[in-house]
């Protein structure tokens, strides 16, 4: 009837500390870095839409082409950051979460694929949309997809931050259309990009708390 556990040099405090430390490490290794993800998309939206707004207002001699290319480059960077994070975190793990991840990944592709078809179909119409209508609907359609996928992801992973961000994006999206051109760009830059950056900031605080120095 000896207490075998008591003969170990591992105290209960030490054990619990060890569990917390290892949990933090697993979290950092096996989950995408949320700060990097939300930060990259937040900056892309903030700077990208601000650039388009500035070009529309004719500020600092910024041409629409340059602003468009800048936005494209920022979006591609955020996409690469996301892909690297997702691939890195999923490496060597298989099972339920890989299946969920694949379905989630496809929902982005299918959503944007459908939007692309809608845009192409509208453009084919006689007369199509006016430049101003495109300027409103182009970003608004994309953000509708983004917001809805965030709601889905938040619900699936029970991630309240992600879900709230989805709600925020949808609200921002709706407001942006009523702001008109070029006000919509400003709304999307500040409220949209700002929403992502707020999420990134929140995850930064969480990480600091989870990782005792």
């Amino acid at each position: 009837m000896t207490e075998r556990a008591d003969t170990s040099d591992l105290s209960a405090e030490k054990s619990l500390a060890l569990i917390e430390e290892q949990r933090g490490r697993v979290g950092r290794d096996l989950e995408p870095n949320a700060v990097l993800l939300f930060g990259a998309w937040g900056l892309a939206w903030l700077i990208g839409f601000a650039g388009i707004y500035a070009a529309d207002r004719g500020w600092a001699g910024l041409s629409e082409l340059v602003a468009g290319l800048l936005f494209f480059a920022l979006l591609m960077t955020a996409l690469v950051v996301t892909a690297v994070q997702v691939v890195r975190s999923a490496r060597g793990v298989r099972g339920v979460s890989s299946e969920i991840g694949a379905m989630y990944g496809w929902s982005w592709l299918l959503g944007f694929g459908c939007l692309f078809a809608i845009n192409a179909g509208l453009a084919r119409q006689d007369g199509g949309l006016t430049d101003e209508q495109w300027a409103l609907f182009g970003p608004a359609g994309a953000l509708l997809v983004v917001g809805l996928v965030y709601l889905g992801g938040g619900a699936m992973w029970r991630d309240r931050v992600q879900y709230r961000l989805g709600v925020w994006i949808l609200a921002t999206d709706a407001v942006s259309v009523f702001a008109g051109v070029p006000g919509n760009y400003l709304v999307l830059a500040l409220a949209g990009g700002g929403g992502f950056l707020a999420a990134a900031a929140w995850f930064t605080v969480q990480r600091r708390r989870a990782v005792p120095a």
Partner: peptide, 25 residues
């Protein structure tokens, strides 16, 4: 209740139920 195995168990318990991790990972 041994340092190394506790860390192994913690890591495996952190996976989603039904997930498997490769040995090198």
């Amino acid at each position: 209740h041994a340092q190394a195995r506790l860390r192994v168990m913690t890591s495996l318990a952190a996976l989603a139920e039904g997930d498997r991790i490769a040995f090198p990972r």
